[in-house]
Amino acid sequence: MSDATTSSAAAKTPKVRFSPQRVWTMAMATVTQLIRMKILAFLVLFCLLAVGAGFAFSVINPEQQLSLLKSVTLGALQIFSIVIGVVSTALLLPKDLEDRTLYTILSKPVPRFDYLLGKLIGVLMLIGGGLIVMDAILSLILWMRQSLLFDEAVNHLRMEKMDSAEAVTQMREIVARQGLTWNLHWAVWAIFLKATVVTTVALLLSSIASSTLFTIVITFCVTIIGHGEALIREFFFTPNLSGMTGRAAALLLAAICPDLAQFDIVDSVVNGEIVPWSAVLNMTSLAAIYVTVYMFITHLVFAEKEL
């Protein structure tokens, strides 16, 4: 076993590089697995909820009704996307390890990073697909409801002999602003970004711990603290508010959690604000930074993990 033969043999075997095809294979297997686990059943639940929120409560005035429809459905979208991201990520990795599926996968020429990225992309594709479907459902209901409500409101005005051109125009404007606009899709995009960040956190945690429950519990803690991170951060940046220990604790908490409140544009969208491009860009790049760094950390841990 001379050095020369060893190195010549080593030279014959080409280095295995990152391969998008392999990541795609991993991602598709993850999506198939999750779909066949009937995880998309929540879409049905969502439809029921959206129809319920859209057509129940006819007691409130039309604009409140539209805003309620949006609040309820977007809130549900938010909960669904985060829960699915966290739970499926926390389930999949330890399950692969427990079932020894990981052995067969990683004993193929598959870099561990490709595996991780494939899993992440798979979960994100599922969330993204679900959000697209739900966005379409919501848009449809909103659009139907919007024209219905407008006709209703105009009829009502006519009955009360108040259907002046001004009043009708005002009603049209109100209903349109509360109805279907592009902003709605940006809100859904923001929800996707938030779910992406939370899912990456779940992946990071599940690469450290092998217990599903641990991952889920800690990820939800991080999610909750992450929503309050802006407050903690401001507390840290406001001098003279507290002693050294308080500030140190605030710094630590703010440092280990991502700021999830930054993706909370849903409420503003429901209130009818217009989403500027700069906001979309800001949120998207911030999410990209979180995901990149967290994936890097995940890889650091997972690359050397004993299986």
Partner: peptide, 22 residues
């Protein structure tokens, strides 16, 4: 975590200025 804080502070301020964040 520490490096991101000023960035987050900036983005939050920006989003609030646009009425995006409460």
């Amino acid at each position: 975590g520490v490096v991101k804080l000023p960035l987050e502070q900036h983005v939050t301020r920006d989003l609030r200025a646009h009425g995006m964040l409460q």
